[in-house]
């Protein structure tokens, strides 16, 4: 019983690792691709690499494959990835910040008939 439970827990952890690895790898593929049409082919290649080991059953073999994949991804990580402008490290981070608390923004333009 507990053997089954640990098996399932280990599988779940592995699945999560694969999803996150795929997500990071896909993002880096987009970072490396100069044009969108190049990205499509690279992304499809990446997907094929993941699909190739879809049917592996042995837990230790899966762990090894994931570790290989993560090492490989680390090697090809983009030095200057795209960051959404408002996020830390983005080009608009902390620009145009929220006004100080004493100042209100009046959204009804002073209209008074909507009380």
């Amino acid at each position: 019983m507990s053997g089954g439970a640990t098996y399932l827990a280990r599988r779940a952890a592995q699945k999560e690792r694969v999803r996150i690895l795929y997500r990071r790898a896909l993002k880096d593929t987009l970072n490396w691709a100069v044009h969108r049409h190049l990205f499509y082919r690279d992304a499809s290649d990446l997907r094929d690499k993941f699909e190739a080991n879809k049917r592996v059953e042995d837990l230790d073999a899966i762990d090894r494959l994931i570790a290989d994949g993560e090492a490989n991804h680390n090697k090809f990580r983009h030095p200057d990835p795209y960051i959404v402008p408002w996020a830390p490290g983005g080009s608009k981070f902390n620009r145009n910040p929220t006004p100080p608390s004493g100042i209100e923004i009046i959204h009804d333009y002073g209209r008074e008939d909507n009380a």
């Binding site: 694969v18 999803r19 996150i20 795929y22 997500r23 990071r24 896909l26 960051i83 402008p85 996020a87």
Partner: peptide, 26 residues
């Protein structure tokens, strides 16, 4: 499958100009 879900979440991030942390996106 789960990888398609990852792709959809990434497409949503691009559509809404978001950056979702990996754990939350998962």
């Amino acid at each position: 499958d789960s990888l398609d879900t990852v792709e959809i979440v990434m497409a949503l991030e691009e559509e809404f100009k978001l950056e979702i942390p990996d754990k939350e996106a998962d």
